[in-house]
Amino acid sequence: MSDSGFQDEGRQRLQKVLANAGVASRRVCEDYIVAGRVRVNGVVVTELGTRVDPESDLVDVDGTAIQLDATKRYVMLNKPTGVVSSMKDDQGRPDLRRFTKDWPERLYNVGRLDAETSGLLVLTNDGGLAHVLAHPSFGVTKVYIAKVEDRVTPQTIAKLTAGIELDDGPIAADKARLLDASGQSSLVELTLHSGRNRIVRRMMAAVGHPVRELVRRQFGPLHLGTLPAGRARELTTVERGALLTLARRDAPSPGADPQP
């Protein structure tokens, strides 16, 4: 029976869609398909005549998600201190709008950093991705570097990973590392997947080392690198693939037929 019923308007040949997404030339993309390296909605596809809808189907090559919908924008911002994580602040404080004016799309932040914390924020118009990555149950890993008061000991680092009790329940760092302890302050690197409010500041205060400065260096697979404070840039193809792969990891496949 012909599959022409699925070849409705908006659906395109898979190799063309992959080539348009910058994966490789159309000929190389055909080789990928035949070799079984391409999946559509979680199912390996080897037929060159396969058609997909770039706006709804999820495609990956060698397990890395491919961005097909060109209307979606993904931006990394190094948020400076003194800026609230909002597109419009009711109290008139500096917000994120100044960093999005170079893009025509309406971008929104994925999660939040408090006003006095700097570092990596993702801005996007992909609401589905933003919801998944910001949801506490998804547990996206974040890496922070905190400059804290006084000299932190190895025993304190061990306490952070073993777990401490806060007002809203117990918490433990996935990883904790002492980077420097000299003079009247220390540098501590904390890796967490918690999305609780001001969690790093509250954890460090609980072990007797209030935070002086705090920066988020990593969000999931994304690294801040050398991006200066107050600057924003689009994610690279590799970064987009890594972020989309993470977001799709536990997501149900769209368009999947529930019938056997």
Rank of each mutant, 00 (worst) to 15 (best):
residue 107 L to P: 01
residue 81 T to R: 13
residue 58 L to N: 02
residue 111 G to L: 10
residue 157 I to V: 14
residue 39 R to H: 12
residue 109 N to E: 03
residue 153 T to G: 15
residue 33 I to C: 14
residue 166 L to N: 02
residue 144 Y to V: 14
residue 221 P to Q: 07
residue 240 R to V: 13
residue 94 P to D: 08
residue 184 Q to H: 09
residue 111 G to R: 12
residue 64 T to D: 07
residue 172 A to G: 11
residue 118 S to W: 09
residue 126 D to F: 05
residue 232 A to D: 00
residue 117 T to Y: 06
residue 211 V to E: 11
residue 88 K to A: 14
residue 45 V to L: 13
residue 70 A to Q: 15
residue 178 L to Y: 07
residue 37 R to Y: 04
residue 149 E to D: 10
residue 91 Q to P: 00
residue 18 L to C: 07
residue 150 D to I: 10
residue 115 A to R: 14
residue 117 T to P: 10
residue 24 A to S: 15
residue 51 R to V: 12
residue 214 L to C: 04
residue 55 E to F: 08
residue 83 V to E: 12
residue 52 V to G: 03
residue 81 T to S: 01
residue 50 T to V: 00
residue 64 T to R: 10
residue 205 A to E: 15
residue 207 V to L: 01
residue 125 N to S: 02
residue 51 R to E: 08
residue 229 A to F: 06
residue 82 G to H: 13
residue 160 L to H: 06
residue 32 Y to Q: 10
residue 255 G to N: 04
residue 233 R to M: 03
residue 124 T to Q: 11
residue 128 G to W: 01
residue 140 V to H: 08
residue 98 R to V: 06
residue 58 L to M: 13
residue 129 L to F: 08
residue 158 A to H: 12
residue 184 Q to K: 15
residue 165 E to N: 12
residue 250 D to S: 14
residue 246 L to E: 06
residue 95 D to E: 00
residue 88 K to P: 04
residue 159 K to T: 15
residue 173 A to W: 08
residue 226 T to L: 06
residue 200 V to R: 03
residue 109 N to I: 05
residue 208 G to H: 07
residue 84 V to G: 07
residue 81 T to P: 08
residue 37 R to H: 07
residue 38 V to W: 03
residue 59 V to I: 14
residue 253 S to V: 13
residue 241 G to S: 08
residue 166 L to D: 05
residue 165 E to R: 12
residue 228 P to A: 08
residue 149 E to M: 08
residue 226 T to K: 15
residue 155 Q to S: 14
residue 108 Y to C: 05
residue 129 L to K: 00
residue 49 G to Q: 05
residue 231 R to I: 05
residue 159 K to G: 05
residue 223 H to F: 04
residue 43 V to Y: 02
